[in-house]
Simulated assay, not measured.
Amino acid sequence: MKVARKVAIVTGGGNGIGGAIAERLAEQGARVLVADLDPKAATAVADRINERHSGSALAEGADIADSEQIRRVIERAETELGPVDLYFANAGIGGAPGLDADDASWDRAFDVNVRAHIRAAQQLVPGWVERGEGYFVTTASAAGLLTQIGSATYSVTKHAAVAFAEWLSVTYGDRGVRVSCLCPMGVETKLMRSGEGSGDPLGVAATRAVISAGDVLQPAEVADIVLDAVDREKFLILPHESVLTMYRQKSSDYDRWLRGMRRYQSSLLEHA
């Protein structure tokens, strides 16, 4: 899909990958609503966009895990920018290391990392099918294809995010709805660094695992890759090519891969 003159919503757009995607969209001629739980962060990104591309961006503070707030974001975009063509379900959260996460933490992880995608799709996809065109972009993680050393809530919900994106593509891909799923490894964001200050060896190991597994990319680099994939309507977006190699190794011999991951985890914990 060519994004010029299209209308996009980017959640978690106040910083990191989401902020970079919002800026790239505007550079390519799209109009974008930047949604973030932190309204000041969303406004800062929108203001930066509008300084270079006047009238191209709006900011909205919202909890995009909440159906009514998703509805409010979509309605504002449609009222002030036009019908929504692209939705970047980018907002995400990590979680407690090990089995320390309580029920509330599990619920919040599923709400933000999975149900937020489902709730947005429920509101947008019927209209896209009727129009014959729409694009849903999921930010998952390499953890959704492989796993994550550290947080169970993150690993499990990112697997679920990948699964929902696959289902969405299979079910609506022949009805005009395009779907992409972003699965990066290390990207220089607050989320990637969160384990370092957790005080838990597994949390420290989680960050070290991501940093040591491959290059740590800047959000702007990932945004360029994402927009190129959208232009080519490519489903699986892998900014780190090594993820595909690891995914193939995992699928070819699951037990060997699990043994290797346990050894890798042990080596990280020795230095945590």
Rank of each mutant, 00 (worst) to 15 (best):
V230K: 12
R175A: 14
F235A: 10
V162T: 04
G95F: 09
A46Y: 01
V137C: 15
H159R: 10
R76V: 04
L269K: 02
I70D: 00
S56Y: 15
Q122S: 03
R48S: 15
P126C: 10
D253K: 03
E51M: 07
A35T: 07
R115C: 00
R259C: 06
D103W: 12
K158W: 12
V3G: 13
Q265P: 01
E188Y: 03
A160V: 05
W106P: 05
L191C: 00
P83Y: 05
R76N: 04
N15M: 12
Q265G: 11
A57D: 12
M246N: 10
L191D: 04
A143Y: 12
G132T: 11
V170N: 11
Y254P: 00
A140V: 00
C183K: 12
M192W: 05
S67A: 14
V45I: 15
S198L: 07
G195C: 13
D253C: 06
G92D: 02
G144S: 08
A89D: 07
V216S: 11
Q218D: 08
M185Y: 12
L202F: 11
T147N: 15
E196C: 04
A229V: 09
K190R: 15
S198W: 09
G186T: 09
A46H: 02
S141G: 10
V73S: 14
M185P: 00
T11G: 01
